[in-house]
Structures are given as structure tokens and as C-alpha cells.
């Protein structure tokens, strides 16, 4: 009876929402509005691209026009990492035991691989305003390299305190750059460095700086989450 009532309520609510949102003045019919002539054209406009200075338009939107949203996004990641750390933090930690011992080749080969992954991720992070990629995927590659080291060696523990310091510094520098925009220019996270030539490595003002900070922050955050998941409480 309770379930039936819930189902009727649920479906009635759904029908009401559809009726309310469909084909009214504030919510026109699905597909009847051409959104491309509202914002997308402005973003793709040649004058605006040269003003922002980022050859990658996705980056121009994510870090340039919508930089404040990205700050919120990074905060969401930070809070989720904090929640994981809160759940899995113990007084005395030790590595989770793996089921079987990794052999010599895996242990030492993965260290070589980690170097290459670091190079690739730094390339992706620093070229975020020129090519697809940027801080978030680059940081995820750093973290996956750390995960590889954890899985390939049953005694490995990374310097997690260093990661936490790095994360905090990167996050605060992000906010400080935003505040500098407020002081030197007119609004929060506004570009206060000259954009330079579109397509050069040193261009687009604060966008590459912010993306490097985001990459470091995302990488260290996910790496510390990995560490939290692969440690357990040491039984006395």
C-alpha cells in the first residue's frame, strides 16, 4: 500500500513537472529554441577568441569565461577527497595487503612507466590552452600513475603529506589569482596578464597558470584518495 502510494505520488509529480515545464512561456517546447545563436556564437567569435587568447575554445570557456564555476568544481572534488580522508583516516596506518606478490618486472617496470606518465601529464597540463586536455585529465593521469605504483608494489607508500601541502598551496593560489584579478582588473578571476598571440605556449594570460594549478590540485587530491583507499588500520 505504501509502495503503491509512493508510485502514484511519484508519477503524478512527474506528470505535473512535464506539464509545467513543457510549452510555457518561460520554458518553450523542447527543441524549438535555437540555442546556438545565443552564447555559442559569442564564444566562437573570432574577436573574442583573440581577446581571451586561448586556441582551445573549451579551455577558454572552462577557465576563461566560466572560471568561477571551475573553482566550484575543484571545491567539490576537494570536499569529496576530504570526505574519503575523514572516513579512512586512522591513527596507525599500514598498507592494505595484496593477494599475491608482485614480481620483479612489474615492480621496477612500473617505476619507469610512472616517469613517462608524469611527462605526458605535464605536457597535457601545460598545453591545456592549446590542445585538448588540460588540468583535469592531466591531474587524473598523475593520479593514475600513483595508483599504478601502489598496485605494482605491495610496500609502496607515497609521501601523502607532501600531496596535501601541494593541494592546499595550489587551491589557495587559484583563489589568490582570482583576487588579484579583482584588484588589478575589475572582477574576480579576470585576466590581468596580456593575452599574447593565439597559439603560442606563453599566451592566454592567466589561463595556463590556473590550469597548471588545477592539474596539481586534481592530481594530488586523487592521489591522496588512492592512498586512503589502499591503507588500513594497523591492528595492535
Amino acid at each position: 500500500m505504501k509502495k503503491l502510494f509512493g508510485l502514484i505520488l511519484f508519477m503524478g509529480l512527474g506528470v505535473l513537472i512535464i506539464l509545467a515545464l513543457n510549452n510555457t512561456i518561460s520554458f518553450p517546447k523542447f527543441g524549438s529554441v535555437d540555442l546556438s545563436d545565443r552564447v555559442a556564437d559569442a564564444y566562437l567569435d573570432n574577436d573574442n577568441v583573440s581577446e581571451v587568447g586561448s586556441a582551445n575554445i573549451v579551455t577558454a570557456i572552462v577557465v576563461g569565461y566560466r572560471g568561477f564555476d571551475t573553482l566550484g568544481e575543484v571545491t567539490v572534488l576537494f570536499i569529496s577527497a576530504l570526505g574519503v580522508a575523514f572516513l579512512f583516516s586512522f591513527k596507525k596506518e599500514k598498507r592494505l595487503d595484496l593477494k599475491f606478490k608482485p614480481n620483479f618486472m612489474l615492480k621496477h617496470g612500473s617505476k619507469l612507466l610512472f616517469g613517462i606518465m608524469l611527462v605526458v601529464s605535464l605536457y597535457i597540463i601545460t598545453h591545456g590552452h592549446l590542445t585538448p586536455g588540460g588540468g583535469f585529465p592531466g591531474g587524473a593521469i598523475i593520479a593514475s600513475g600513483v595508483l599504478l605504483l601502489y598496485l605494482a608494489d605491495d610496500k609502496f607508500r607515497s609521501n601523502i603529506k607532501g600531496f596535501k601541502v601541494l593541494e592546499g598551496v595550489a587551491g589557495s593560489l587559484f583563489v589568490i589569482i582570482g583576487l588579484l584579478g579583482l584588484i588589478l582588473a575589475t572582477s574576480f578571476l579576470e585576466n590581468f596578464i596580456a593575452s599574447g598571440t593565439v597559439g603560442q605556449l606563453l599566451s592566454a594570460g592567466i589561463i595556463p597558470i590556473i590550469y597548471v594549478l588545477i592539474g596539481l590540485k586534481v592530481g594530488s587530491e586523487i592521489a591522496s584518495v588512492v592512498d586512503n583507499f589502499l591503507t588500513e588500520e594497523e591492528s595492535a
Binding site: 608482485p102 614480481n103 612500473s110 619507469l112
Partner: peptide, 10 residues
């Protein structure tokens, strides 16, 4: 060169 043999042997 590094990842393919390690992955397959693992």
C-alpha cells in the same frame, strides 16, 4: 615497449 610486456605478463 615498457607497458605492453609488463601488462601481458601481469
Amino acid at each position: 615497449v615498457i607497458s605492453n610486456p609488463i601488462g601481458s605478463s601481469t
